[in-house]
Amino acid sequence: MPKKAAERNEFGEKLAHDLRVIPEVLHNLLAGYFRLETHGWENIPKKGKALIVANHSNAVGYDAFILGYTIHKFLRRVPRTMAHNFWFGDEFRNSFARRYGLFPADLKEGLNQLKKNNLVVIFPEGAEGNFKVSSSMYKLVDFNPGFVPLAIMQRAPVVPAAIIGAEESVYNLAKIDWFKDIIGSSIPLPLNIIPFPVKWKIKFLKPIDFGKYSKKDIKDPRFVKEINQNIRYRIQHEINKEIKDRDLIFK
């Protein structure tokens, strides 16, 4: 892929053009290790903006990595992933994160990404979902409703995605809240950093179009809450179905 000149935004920051910073070999290796299976590519638009909303788990964050790379590999589109503000703490982390297509959890940034007709990946469970203790695996925590105004204001279709297998590949023993006030997030206590070879499955569900709603509706908190819960229910339902159908997690 030819290298493009680095584009800069109004703050003078370099913007990610492609994700080829880490060689694709690493993705293929991990995808093979997890026997990654993907379904529902037809649900993601080939062109134009879309919001992919997925469940988050496994403390280390392999799911965000795999999801981003898989989308890049199959659709040749670079997804922009909303990440925890921790990744934008100082200059070094900031430039590092932006090179991987991450952007901070901020409504303006999100709107900007959609305005540029990008694919935006959001994990509305956030750190709470990522660092949840393994005893409550596959029970989605409450979604942060921030993605709902994003989708409606930009008229972007929402594609819910269910990631199955990530929970068992890294076991999280505890969630430590002691430093929450200082660093702004809980700390996980994972059992293993090198993931177990669990079979992974990523399923993209049917896109939801909010075309008939407008900015006026977002002002009603009940409206935002119910859309949020509806999407959470879709993902949870798909996960429950998949878990019921599989008999062995390594197969």
Partner: peptide, 10 residues
């Protein structure tokens, strides 16, 4: 009810 709920936006 499940299907009606899922299709509530369309």
């Amino acid at each position: 009810l499940h299907q009606s709920y899922l299709e509530s936006f369309s």
